[in-house]
Design a protein around this nucleic acid. Sequence first.
DNA 1: GGAAGCATGTAAAGTGTTACATGATTTT
DNA 2: AAAATCATGTAACACTTTACATGCTTCC
Lengths: 183, 183
Amino acid sequence: MALKTSSYLILGLVRGGMNSGYAIKRFIEEQRMSVFWATTFAQIYPELSDLEKAGYLTHREDPHGARPRHAYTLTAKGERALMSWLRRSRIPPMELRDEGLLRLAFADNLSRKEAISLIRRLRARSEEAEREFRESIIPTGEALQALGLRYPLVIGRMGAEYHAWAVKHFTQLEAEVLDDEPR
Amino acid sequence: MALKTSSYLILGLVRGGMNSGYAIKRFIEEQRMSVFWATTFAQIYPELSDLEKAGYLTHREDPHGARPRHAYTLTAKGERALMSWLRRSRIPPMELRDEGLLRLAFADNLSRKEAISLIRRLRARSEEAEREFRESIIPTGEALQALGLRYPLVIGRMGAEYHAWAVKHFTQLEAEVLDDEPR
DNA sequence: GGAAGCATGTAAAGTGTTACATGATTTT
DNA sequence: AAAATCATGTAACACTTTACATGCTTCC
């Protein structure tokens, strides 16, 4: 079985104490890991059982009353796989899909007024994202830091600072477009 | 037929004068539009013929010697569809998939030395991306600006500046990690 | 004459999302 | 008593990538 990136996502989260499918999904959403690696239940549950079949995970039953729950842990093989992935020297290029930037790339088809309105909406999108990072991801990151985990906070700060940068960038772009062909 | 984002990508490029499948692909690669919306021949060719069947495009034969070539143009319906997409008020959230950031999120599992090596490789990746933007995408953007197209250059500059920001960010992060738990 | 680039496509496999399906527990 | 949250999964559909398949033209 060849492991995909989403397999390592799951191994990493199980290693970090998220031992059920539900807990994995919740952590990804709460910590906005979905920003750089989104996933769904329909991927997580089959992947957990595939990883177990292939010997990277084991689980025990961990019911909560009559509600069933599976508590997964890494096997030695799972630990080795996770660590060797983390240590790989090659980092694949990041993949971005952004309809907003795609529309900006075609903004020559728009009137100046319309282009400015698009730029403003792009800025508003980043403003909102920055707020979310500051108000919910960073605080969770700080809580995790108290438990000895530093990198969730590092990622949260990076997200907030990136969007702050984007807001500045779009503000400046708006000024340039307003300025450049005055009429 | 419901149009997807990649349909609009193709409509936008045909509108911009890239009238064959091959020309579309080449422009996406050269102008590194693939950075925010990647695609392949296996998507472009079927999409062109679907868009034609649905009345958004027409083509005429435009052979180059004995080598066949299709020259597509937008129909009135295609123009309307493209413009109404560009003017839509809602901008979907950007989607990022970055194995590098995912590994950084799990860097608590690494030794300090290993974490620093990961951060350095992330910085190197952005350095290289910045260089590519400055050396090839921005110059092409400048050429297009001379033809009255401003936004390809806007996008090129944004890419270069983003990666410059990321380089600074990773440099600072490396210093923090080195500093923080001195041994 | 060979390599690089131009040009169009299909088939199969892989990956990911949405909708569906079910039921228990906790909070309001 | 209802709503929100916890918990696990499947089926169908949509989308994307990789590999294959072919042949012409231009540059060195």
